[in-house]
Design a protein around this nucleic acid. Structure first.
Lengths: 140, 140
DNA sequence: TTTACTGCAAATCTTTTGCATCAAC
DNA sequence: GTTGATGCAAAAGATTTGCAGTAAA
């Protein structure tokens, strides 16, 4: 139905069927600049194809997560969000005032990672960390 | 019914009623070394007083949260946990292998806080951060 | 005595699951 | 043609809410 993106190719290489539903979920995730929630993915799909069921979205996300093609991040408030694993890891500054999500380079946290390893012998994952606070606009 | 702790005093000073249910929720939170979940609080209470309803626990936690007497932390996996605001802020290293929760001193994160303020003009809350990874025992 | 708080039951909301049908391969 | 994927409906789990009775102040 659409041009399959990078993830779609991998799915198909791994022997999974490339259904229109899966491609739509993939497109929603790949096209999203930021992270996207289940409901947002579903809303996008239903707008075009109302017969698609939300359980399919859940099942597809479950599959993609399991295969490591998509990553799940908990940005607080129980709202889990997804993004393409291809886009690499990064962290987030979440403004509790306006809800803005600012991407944070991985390098900023490398010294923290070192400290934790040195002082706590703890290997920090630090793949998808959300730091809550207040952004420039809201702190005035 | 029991000796009211520090939080109970505040509650009563603020004009809220000190019911046995509220005191039991407070005791559960104050007695807990670590963070405690809704179900754990409820289980503790029901063991003694089976007629207490879980919705009361939710309502009490909602109140305590709103008054800033208790803090809610999301340690991942949708499991929200609570602890007394009086015990001060600290952070957590959560081992994804064995589930161990290691308390992390606030000072470790102060340099990160400075960096975020300097480079991103972002005022980081960093009150209850959970960092996931692997602890000493499990990394071997 | 007053009315905030509670217990109960039902509603909500999110996510999961069983099963018959359907379509990707 | 096979069998994995989907839609549907129902279940499951967590949290919230309306309401009438109860008890803290």
């Amino acid at each position: 139905m659409k041009q399959p993106g990078g993830i779609a190719n991998k799915l198909s290489e791994l022997g999974y069927r490339l259904t229109p539903q899966r491609i739509m979920v993939l497109s929603a995730i790949e096209d999203s600049d930021n992270h996207i929630s289940v409901e947002e993915i579903y809303a996008q799909i239903v707008a075009k194809y109302p017969q698609v069921n939300i359980s399919t979205v859940y099942r597809t996300l479950e599959l993609l997560k399991r295969l490591g093609l998509v990553t799940e991040t908990d940005l607080g408030g129980g709202r889990v969000r997804y993004h393409s694993a291809e886009k690499g890891h990064h962290h987030h500054l979440v403004c509790q005032e306006c809800g803005a999500i600012i991407d944070l380079d991985e390098s900023v946290l490398s010294s923290l990672k070192d400290t934790l390893l040195r002082e706590y012998k703890f290997i920090a994952g630090l793949r998808h960390l959300a730091i809550f606070g207040r952004c420039v606009n809201c702190s005035r």
